[in-house]
Computed example of a mutant assay.
Amino acid sequence: MRLQHLHLLLTIAHTGSLRACAETLNVTQPALTKALKQLEEEFGTTLVIRSPKGVRLAPAGELLAARAATVVREIDRAREEVEWLTRHAQATVTVGVSPAAALMLAPQAVSRFQSRWPQVRVRLVDALYPTALAQLRSGELDLALGPLPATGLGRDLEARALIDSPEVIAVRAGHPLAKCRQLADLAGANWVLTGPVQGPGDPAHLQMERLGLPPPRITLECASFSTLLAVLPRMDAVALMPRRFFESHGPRTGLAVLPIADALPLTTIHLFLRTDSPLTVPTQRLVDAFVNEADALRGARS
C-alpha cells in the first residue's frame, strides 16, 4: 500500500465521485479505478460501494479511511517538522482549549512561547468536553486542555493534571435567589445544564443529594458557556460555571455570583496527549509552556 492509495481513499470519501476524485488527484479515471482495485485486492474486501448516485465507502473502507487520515496527518507533520528544523520554516501547533483553560493558562503560556519561538504558529481551537478528545485522537489537535472525562481515558491518551479551576453558581443580577448562602436554599430553583452531562457545567457535581436535597431540576440545556452568557441574564435560572469564566464575562453581562458558604466543586484542568504518536519539537515546547504556566499559577496561590 502506498501513500497515494491513502489519498485516494480519503478523496473518494470527500468527493463521493470517482470522476471528481480523479480530477482532484490529477489522474485519469482508469488509473484511479486500477489503483482502487489493487487496494481492495490487498485488503481482500470491498472498500468502495458504487451506485447510480456516486460512490461511498463501505464499512471496511470507512475503517481504513479513519486510519489513513491519521497516517497522512502524521506524515504532513513530519515534513513540517523537518522543514522547521532544517530551513527554519514556519510550523503549526493546534491546541484544543476549554473555556477555563483558555482563560487561566493560554494567554501567558502562548505569549511566552511565541516570544521564544516566533516562527511557530499556534492555533487555539474551542474544544468542549468531551469532543476535544475525539479531535485529539483523529489528529485534528496536537494537544488538548480541559477536564478529565468521568469515564476515564483509553490507553491511546495520556492526561497530566495541571491546575484546579474553582466553580461558582451564577444568576442574573436581581434574581430572587441572589442572596442565598446555602445550597439548601436552591432546592426549588430552575437549573441550567451547560455542555454535556458530567462536564464542568453540570449541576450534578454539587451532589445535593448528600445534603438530603432533591437533585437539581434542569429546565434548560446550553451547548456552551457562550450561549449561557446570552440567555442567563434574562432568566430566573441558576447555573454552575468556572470562576475565571465568570470573572471575565459575568459582571459585564449582568450576572452575579451567589454567596454560597457550602463547598463548591473544583474542576481540574488536564493536558491531554496521544500516546501513539511522538510529539514534534514545537509541540513539546508548547507543552512545556503550559506546564510552566500552571506551576507558576499554583505557586502564586500558595
Rank of each mutant, 00 (worst) to 15 (best):
P118Q: 02
G250E: 13
T46H: 09
L264N: 07
W191V: 09
L220F: 03
P166Y: 02
T267W: 00
K179D: 13
A173P: 01
T86Q: 15
Q4E: 14
G146R: 04
L64Q: 14
R56I: 02
G54H: 13
H7R: 10
L273Y: 11
A102V: 01
V238L: 00
T92F: 11
P242A: 03
L57T: 05
L183Q: 05
T94P: 13
A100T: 10
F246V: 12
G139T: 09
A58S: 15
A189E: 05
Q4G: 14
A204R: 04
P214I: 05
R77D: 04
V82E: 02
T194A: 04
Q207M: 09
T280H: 09
D126C: 12
T280M: 11
L153S: 08
V171D: 08
P130W: 14
D262H: 03
A144C: 05
L264G: 11
V168A: 03
Q114C: 06
L193H: 06
H5W: 07
L9H: 15
T24K: 15
G152Y: 05
Y129S: 09
A144R: 04
S226F: 01
L232Y: 07
R243E: 06
L213H: 08
L255S: 02
L3I: 03
L264T: 02
P215E: 02
V122A: 08
Q108H: 12
E247C: 00
L148W: 06
F272R: 04
G154D: 09
L297C: 01
C222F: 02
T86F: 15
L124C: 14
L64A: 15
T131P: 01
K53C: 03
R210Q: 08
P215T: 06
V257P: 00
A263V: 05
A89C: 09
T15S: 11
C180P: 00
V287Q: 12
L264M: 05
R112Q: 13
T11M: 01
Y129M: 04
V171A: 11
L47Y: 10
F272D: 11
R210M: 12
L18A: 05
R137A: 12
A239C: 03
D126E: 14
T33G: 13
L36Q: 15
H7A: 05
G154C: 08
L141K: 10
S165R: 10
D202M: 09
P99H: 02
I260N: 09
V48P: 11
L258K: 05
R116C: 01
V231T: 14
M104L: 10
C180E: 10
V95S: 13
L162I: 14
K53R: 10
E247G: 02
A78E: 07
V82K: 00
T280W: 12
L57W: 03
L8M: 08
G16K: 11
A68D: 04
R116H: 00
P166T: 12
L157M: 03
V197T: 11
L229T: 15
G16D: 01
I169E: 08
E81A: 14
T24V: 03
A173S: 10
F246Q: 01
G174W: 03
L63V: 09
A132P: 07
G174F: 08
V287F: 06
L211D: 05
F113S: 04
E41A: 06
Q284V: 00
L273R: 11
H249G: 01
R217H: 02
R67D: 12
P130V: 07
R210H: 00
D202I: 07
A178H: 04
V231C: 08
